[in-house]
Amino acid sequence: MIEEQIEELLESINLHRSFDKNTPHIVINANKVLRSQVVEGLTIEPEELSDGVKARLRVEKGYKILQPVHLCFGMLPERGVQRIILEVQIEDEAEVSFLAHCTFPQAVDIQHLMNAEIKVGRKARYSYFERHWHSDEGMVRVVPVAKIELAEDARFSTEFELLKGRVGVIDIDYSTVCQARSSAEMKARIFGRLDDRIKIKEAAVLEGEASRAVLTTHIAVRDEAVAEINNEIIAKAPYSRGHVDCKEIIQGNGIARAVPVVEVRNPKAHVTHEAAIGSVDSKQLQTLMARGLSEDQAVDLIIQGLLS
């Protein structure tokens, strides 16, 4: 039964043939931990809740986990709530990358709520790639909230991708505090269709000298989908640097709103932003159509490029 559920979840993310059981991982269906595997230096302590799972992930000081750690959070039922509470601690000088798959293949009405507290130690490196796999028709409400603390010289990157299936409702709220010489990169790429609702708030506070942050959001909305992006960098320390980049393409009756906020509290800090919202660039469109692509094919290719 458990193996069948694992197989079904992995199949929904196209990993059922290639997944190596010895890879460090944890597979969760609703509130059940189906399987987990750790390697030296990595501990995963899961605890089942009534409506989800709480997990503590720790990489011990100085350990470099070479293989990406797979996190598979899924809901095989059509309806329900999955609450994921993550406490992540990457100790000093440790390195790890996580590859998270959130899959809801039969979703009709599902809520996926995540609360994460992430602490990245001195000179530690942590990357987190999260890919969502939703059904084409159903409604999924995704609410990830993460608070990230970066110690001196830490490196943190996160990327959120939802390109296939319906978004439903997504409400991302990530905030990072960066100490001296640390860096944070946060990127989101989402394609909204029908009446999807996308709300993103990414924030970085550059507390430490020479800390850095780049917030990148690339969104495409079509049909009646709506996107609202509120990205913010506050630079408090000398030589801190930040950049907010928001690009959105709208098609049909889609609506996009971007509010990049930059606040600089130190004369030696420097933060830039760019936001571009519009329909597909006419020159790009005409170029591809002059090669024989239909307008729809050309738009799809341009959006594919933006979201790649």
Binding site: K247, Q284, Q286, T287, L301, I302, Q304, S308
Partner: peptide, 10 residues
């Protein structure tokens, strides 16, 4: 075109 289009990401 005299100045070809750029395609970010492609």
């Amino acid at each position: 075109w005299q100045e070809p289009a750029r395609f970010e990401g492609l």
